[in-house]
Each structure stands twice: as structure tokens, then as C-alpha cells.
Design a protein around this nucleic acid. Structure first.
Lengths: 336, 336
DNA sequence: AAACCGGGTGTGACCGCTAACAGACAGCGA
DNA sequence: TCGCTGTCTGTTAGCGGTCACACCCGGTTT
């Protein structure tokens, strides 16, 4: 029943010009007389004409869509990144199509990438925080613009990443500066590059301060794991400073410490990573490291767009420095 | 330099059939000889052929993409919903294109919807939790399948929504059952339907229990607001039970109570809403109401697909009941 | 005066696919 | 034997844009 949407020829007929002229007006082509342009624009408005992106994508071979591959988009980090990407892309006239994967293995990633390629997306952003994702990407067709975020620093692909090591160094140093003799680290899953970078930064800070390096406390990203690790740490009287790989872990640690009667920051200091909006309302307010997701999104898109627009590549790597946010969960170590 | 992607005709030539037969194989059309089908599939595999969705979208007039309009996708609720939608859509062979808006006013929403329409999306899901969103939707072209989520219950549009009132009733009743004489409520922003529904449920539960209705404590969705409200509530000795409109508010309230030396649940009981993953690790673990985002996503998509596939509409309204998750933040009122 | 230029516009082909129709060929009842 | 079915396949015409090109025309240049 619905009448066919107006097409370019309809606009052209109404304006008394050819469809090509309409196209020129639409694309801001210079050689159109002002008067003609106005006539065409009036016709467009009158008909409520809306250019068909599918047709455009067909003839140009590329749509104005950017495909994103992500996992676990309910976590604060990925969700923020996704939102920032969408925002930034929209400003450049691109739409964003998300493809979530349950696991970051070769099969899942390829499947989603295939889906994006079938839509002839202009470019793809892969949030690839684990090893297995990297492998999947190497086998991909090489003619589609691609940027990885939080991916493998040792792989020769365009990469934008938060400087995890720098953030971790800052966190650890902050604790050392407060007077602690050493700092324990509750880390994220071992196969994530984020984890690896944070561990590396933590070790580096301790090493360069000549501090003893305590054993790593491995966990995942959840508050539940933080709670378990916290229960252990709470029983160790010589632990006075803990740096957790993210804020959720810190939350779990805080609760465990609280239940064991160890006060924060009087007995133990805690620093997190991510600066989730709630971190300021933990008990006590959490000192943490804030990555700039907006900057990551902007850098990714910029890299993608240079790839899309030209053959010559710009920078292949961009690192975004995070900042430390000091709150009340850090204090000097207890006097013995 | 990149060689043109193989098209249907290339596959056809290699398989020694017409492009139309290739199309038939791709679309699972019945009348194709088994042997031919195999030949075509072999050719597809050999060339690495990938059907061009843009071309398909052009000729059919609809792409296999669903447009989503959302605001503030970094919040836990919207992010979960988005992820669930993506997941569900993928299972039906649809991609999801997100369009975030900063504000849910007429202009912003229309702009994003226009963008989706230009792409000829098959349908649109609008997460429209505030009044101003509803107005924008009424002026939209009526021939595009549309579903609103968490929208205005009084507007005659296809709507899927969490049963906010039921959740709030359950939370309030749970506190009353624990022996509290009445329950205070820290509410979300007044222009959100979610807030309104939760307030309504809270009032209803108190009314039907014959309990006194304390003044509403208005806030927004943030932990910061929860903290401010909590500081006030902590100073009122007769407050023994608080129901907050979401878990972040609860977090803020918990901290304020803690700082004022009021123990939870011994002195005051608290119930939240959303069941964010961290709620189990608040101090103390938070009793809360869990909406089923997966169910919301499934219902939305189902409604959208029936609209897409046929003219006759199915149900115009679906309400998803949330469940109460009991944890340690609720106990009996203190003995006077 | 002929040749040249460049701004403004129209013409036709084509992008890769689907829909509608047409044809070939086998089986089968009349 | 002649239709008449039904299965399988090919042919053709678009969908709504962009691109390459041709055209017209007034103003310079040679």
C-alpha cells in the first residue's frame, strides 16, 4: 500500500532538471547555478526526498557505515568506547553497526567481520583485547580499512590503545609515594593485553623504585573475583597497598577488607583502574586511573578515515595516556 | 589496485549456470537440482564470493538492518539492552545500527531516525524513556516498522517495557514483609517513565498495606545523587527502610549511611533496582530488582519482525516482569 | 573568423542483485 | 499422439544512485 519513496528522478522531474543535477546538488558539486540549486532543494523538501544510501553504496562499492566488532559490551569500558565511537563517527557522517561476539576466537570474529563485509562497510574497528583475536585478523582480506583497539602491540596492524603500562605505573608510583614499601597487584585475565600492560607497568614501577615484587594475584574483571582475592589479602598482615586491574575488582576487594575489619585507607590502601562513575561513591571513594575513551575513539576513527580516504597510511599506532584520579582510598601505611 | 570483489555473475560463469540460479541457491529456493546446487556452492567457496547486501537492499527496498535509537548507552541498563538486542537480531540474520542521541528531544531523535531511514533499515527500535521522545515519534513516517522500549504507556505505539510498577511493588512489599512500618523512596528523574512506574508501584504497595506514605525523595540516576539523598536520610532517625530507583543510587545511599554510622541492614534496610553485576559486592550486598533485558530484547525484536513480515500487527504491548533478588541489605527494623 | 575554454547541464551505461516471465524438458493422463 | 502438468533453468528489466562523457553556450585567445 505504501507509496514508493520518492527517488532522484522524481525530484528531477519536479524541479525540471535531470537526475544528474539533483545528484550534484546533493553532493555539493560546485558547478551548479545558484538558482537551479534552490529549485532542486525546494523540490527535495516538497517531496520529502531522502537519498537512498543502499543505491549509493551499490554504485560506489562502499557504504557510509563503520562496522565494530566487540565483546561483552555491557562492561563499562567497552560500552563507553562504543558510545564514543558512535558519537565520533556520526560527526563524520558515518553510521556504526555493532557486531558483538561471545568469544574472541577466530571463528566468531571472522563471522562478524564477514557480516560487515557483506554490507560493504567502509571500515572496521575491532576491539581485540586478547591474543586469539589477533590471529583471526591476520587472515582477513587486506583491502578493507581496519583498526584494532586494545589489540596486540606486537602485531603489525593499525592499533589504538590506552597506555595501560603508564596507567599502572602511575597507580603503583602513587602508592609508593604515599610511603608503602611495596604494592600488591590483583590482575585481570591473563590473556588480555590490558592485563599484561597493567602488570608490566606495575612491575616496572616497583623495579625502578627498588621495591620488592610480591607474587601476582590473578583474577578476572569481576567484583566476585576481587572479593575472593580480597579475602586472601585481608589475612596477610604485611599487605598495605593493593592495585587492582579495574574498579570492579577493587569493589570486591574493598568489601572483603571491610568484612575482615581492615580499614581503607588506614590499614590498607587500594587503587583501581577505569574510573567507573560509581568509583567516587565506593566506601571509601576509590583512587583510580581514568582512560580517555573519547580520545581512543577519536584516534581510531581518524586512523580509519585516513585509510578510507587515501592509500598512503598515516600513523599505524596511537597510544592514549590515562590520568590518575586521587581519592580517599589511598593513605600512608600504618605505623607498625 | 584491489581486484573487484567477485559478483554473482562470476560465480555463475564458474559454475556454468546463470546468475539467477546462483541467486536461487543463495536464497534457498527449492527448485534447484542437487547437483547444480553443489556446483554453485563449490564455485562460491572457490571464489570467496560474498553476496552484496547493498545491492540486495536496493532491489528489495529494505536492508537487513535494524536501527536503534538510544541515549546514554554507557549506563548499565541501556548497554545491556543494546547488547541483548544485537544478540537477538543477529540470530534472525539482522545487523544492528546504533544511533545515540545526547538529548531525547524532537530534533535529536528525528535526526537519528532520518539517518536510519536513509539507510532503508528494516525497522527501528527506539529506547524512549522520557516524555519528549514520544512526541518526536508521532510525527514519523508511519510505514516503517517501529517499536518503542520503555516508552510512554499512554501513547498508542508498539511498546515493550519492563514492568516497573511490579518491580517497585515487589521491592516495597519485601521491605514491609521484613517488618518495616513504611518505606522511603529515592526516585529517578521525574521525566522518565521508568521513574514514574517505580514511584507508582511503591505508592501502590504502601497504600494497599495501609502504610503511611512518606514524602518522595527526588534524585537522578547517579551515585552522586544517591549520596546526597543518603546524607539527608541518615539524619532522620525514623527512617528504617529505603527503596532506591536504581543500584547506583543505592550505592550512594549506602556510603552516606556508612559515614553517618548507620548500619545496613541493622539500622536501615536498602533495596535497589537493576541488579548491576556489582550489586552483590556492595557493602553490604544489595537486595535489588532484576529486569530481564534479554526478554525485553526478544519481545521487541519479535514485535518488530511481525511488523516487517506482514501487515497485520501482533500484540501492541508487551510487559516484562522483573524479579526480586534478595541479599543482605534487608533485615527487620531495629527494636526501639 | 576560427579555435579554444570552462561553467552549467543532460545522456547513457553500469553497480549487483531480485522479481517476473519465458522456455525446455520430463512424466502422465486422455 | 497430443496436450498438460510440474520441475529446473535462463532472459530481461528494473531498483536508485554515480561516473564518464557529450553537449551547449558565452567569452577569450589566436
Amino acid at each position: 500500500m505504501a507509496v514508493r519513496d520518492p527517488a532522484m528522478t522524481d525530484v528531477a522531474r519536479l524541479a525540471g532538471v535531470s537526475h544528474q543535477t539533483v545528484s550534484r546538488v546533493l553532493n555539493g558539486h560546485p558547478n551548479v547555478r545558484e538558482q537551479t540549486r534552490l529549485r532542486v532543494q525546494a523540490a527535495i523538501a516538497e517531496l520529502g526526498y531522502r537519498p537512498n544510501r543502499a543505491a549509493r553504496a551499490l554504485v560506489t562499492g562502499r557504504s557510509q557505515v563503520i562496522g565494530v566488532v566487540a565483546q561483552n559490551t555491557t562492561l563499562y569500558g567497552p560500552a563507553s568506547l562504543l558510545a564514543a565511537l558512535e558519537q565520533t563517527a556520526a560527526e563524520s557522517g558515518f553510521a556504526v553497526s555493532v557486531g558483538s561476539v561471545r568469544d574472541l576466537d577466530h571463528r566468531s570474529i571472522s563471522a562478524v567481520v564477514e557480516r560487515h563485509l557483506a554490507h560493504r562497510v567502509a571500515g572496521i574497528v575491532v576491539i581485540a583485547p586478547v591474543e586469539s583475536a589477533g590471529e583471526a585478523l591476520e587472515r582477513l582480506p587486506k583491502d578493507v580499512p581496519l583498526v584494532t583497539v586494545d589489540g596486540d602491540p606486537h602485531r603489525p596492524m593499525p592499533l589504538v590503545t590506552v597506555d595501560q603500562a603508564a596507567g599502572a605505573r602511575a597507580a603503583t608510583q602513587h602508592l609508593l609515594d604515599a610511603g608503602h614499601r611495596t604494592v600488591w597487584h590483583v590482575s585481570g585475565p591473563s590473556d588480555w593485553f590490558d592485563s599484561a600492560g597493567r602488570i608490566e607497568g606495575w612491575r616496572a614501577a616497583l623495579t625502578s623504585a627498588g621495591a620488592e615484587i610480591p607474587p601476582l594475584v590473578p583474577a578476572d574483571w569481576s567484583a566476585a573475583a576481587g572479593y575472593r582475592c580480597g579475602q586472601m589479602l585481608a589475612r596477610m598482615p604485611d599487605v598495605t597497598a593493593v592495585f587492582t586491574a579495574n574498579d570492579h575488582l577493587a569493589l570486591g576487594v574493598l568489601r572483603a577488607l571491610h568484612e575482615h575489619g581492615r580499614r581503607v585507607p588506614d590499614d590498607i590502601s587500594v587503587v583501581g583502574f577505569d574510573d567507573v562513575p560509581e568509583a567516587a561513591y565506593f566506601i571509601p571513594p576509590l583512587t583510580t586511573v581514568r582512560p580517555d575513551f573519547g580520545a581512543v575513539a577519536r584516534a581510531s576513527l581518524e586512523m580509519l578515515l585516513t585509510q578510507i580516504e587515501s592509500v598512503s597510511g598515516g600513523a599505524l599506532r596511537r597510544t592514549i595516556a590515562p590520568t590518575l584520579v586521587a581519592r580517599r582510598s589511598v593513605g600512608p601505611p600504618p605505623r607498625p
